[in-house]
Write a protein that binds this DNA or RNA. Structure first.
Lengths: 235, 235
DNA sequence: AAGAGTTTGTGAACGCGAGAACAAAATCGT
DNA sequence: ACGATTTTGTTCTCGCGTTCACAAACTCTT
């Protein structure tokens, strides 16, 4: 409990940022970043936690607590310097560096993702587009040509890719996932409606359109049932 | 506390399903449904909570508790009848009926969504594609022609649409959202990277690619930092 | 028919995250 | 220079969701 702790080096570092920002907070940092960027574009120099909270759509106490995990970047009685805080959050997330990304599966969705401008604007760069259909290899999508899935390993090594996006049909997803992991990719964003198994050291997140719609349908049905009940009681 | 409760009608109903399935459970029901469908396709007649939990990628106790909110559909010592449970979950979510959906913003993403086969296979039907660009009105995407955003209200009324999907640029999202709400849509799935304000009675869910990537980047950076630290300590 | 073996449904403990509330620290006005 | 005001950073409490653990309920074997 005294002096040397764990495998920390001797150099003093910011204790607060050292270990463990709660996952819920991490998920909100990009939202704050977006709000700060919007304020910055409007030439707002400083903003209170309340201002920011409104822009981000969260409770101000929650926002202050979230920011406190990063460090003490605010000034009591004043608020937060918009550009300074924006930089600090960007640095914390890792957006001060460039992240090469490969997209696997260039169907309708892969196409859309390849052309998505939100990639480049936030430090993500599409390094390659891959598809298992040999007939499509060479075809251009925007600036980039489609490469063969066989070249995955070489591309990942050559461009130091650590993030992969899966936009294949569900049936192919696990196989592609395994290949990505074997090639050295350690973060995966999965758009295929399938459960993917990965080793512990690999992070995986899924985006599932169909699930989102089903959740909406559940609530929608509930609203309709409530109305029907009121009607029945009245009649 | 006795006899007549709230605005319930006199008819007895299943108390369990009557009110309030936890939101976390609702979000998992579609996952269970997918797992059950997969098992059904493999002609598996019954499955234990453990089997299902593995297929769905969750803890079996959690799965049992989730299912218990719907009713008592399992048999102790045996497990769950796959097809029966599948039907019950589908009914609970509201997938026994057909949900017409409108998609607004037919750019790259809107195109991909319009052609997404996962829609139809789960009871969602694309009723119309809308775009504000008059030059594109009439253009066909798959089977459907693009309609003008001006016709939104009529389309919503004619087809009893209650779910809308926003796939426009961020700048247009709030305006489109307001129009959807005004037309009578009460559930919205938003793909635009923008915070949308809606009345209380409207449900909204967002899917944000850029945020997902940023979350992955944070963890990726963390892994890299950890490695660097170990290297530095060793050297 | 009765005991052995399974598997569900649920009570209880625990941990995390949300939000209220407040002390500490900065600015501003006089 | 000092009190009033603003706003942060943090402590505390509460509720929700996850997980463990076990009694109840069912099947199967003999």
């Amino acid at each position: 409990m005294t002096s040397v702790g764990g495998r920390r080096s001797g150099r003093a570092r910011d204790e607060r940022a050292e270990r463990g920002i709660p996952e819920a907070t991490v998920a909100r940092l990009p939202v704050y970043l977006r709000a700060l960027t919007a304020l910055s574009d409007l030439d707002v120099a400083t903003a209170s936690s309340e201002d920011l909270a409104v822009s981000a759509g969260v409770n101000s106490a929650k926002l202050r607590k979230d920011l406190s995990y990063l460090g003490t970047y605010g000034t009591r009685g004043v608020g937060y310097d918009v550009n300074y805080l924006r930089y600090q959050i960007a640095r914390e997330i890792g957006l001060t560096q460039d992240w090469p990304v490969v997209i696997v599966g260039i169907g309708n969705l892969g196409h859309a993702l390849a052309n998505y401008s939100g990639f480049a604007s936030r430090g993500f760069r599409v390094a390659a587009l891959l598809d298992s259909d040999r007939a499509r290899v060479g075809e251009k999508v925007g600036e980039l040509p489609i490469s063969s899935l066989d070249d995955l390993e070489e591309i990942v090594r050559a461009s130091s890719v650590s993030i992969g996006v899966i936009a294949t049909p569900a049936a192919a997803a696990q196989d592609v996932c395994d290949q990505l992991v074997a090639a050295g990719v350690s973060s995966i964003l999965n758009f295929a409606p399938a459960l993917l198994a990965v080793p512990d050291h690999v992070d995986i997140r899924k985006v599932d359109l169909s699930i989102e719609l089903q959740i909406l349908a559940y609530h929608e049905q509930r609203k309709a049932a409530g109305l029907a009940e009121i009607k029945a009681d009245a009649g």
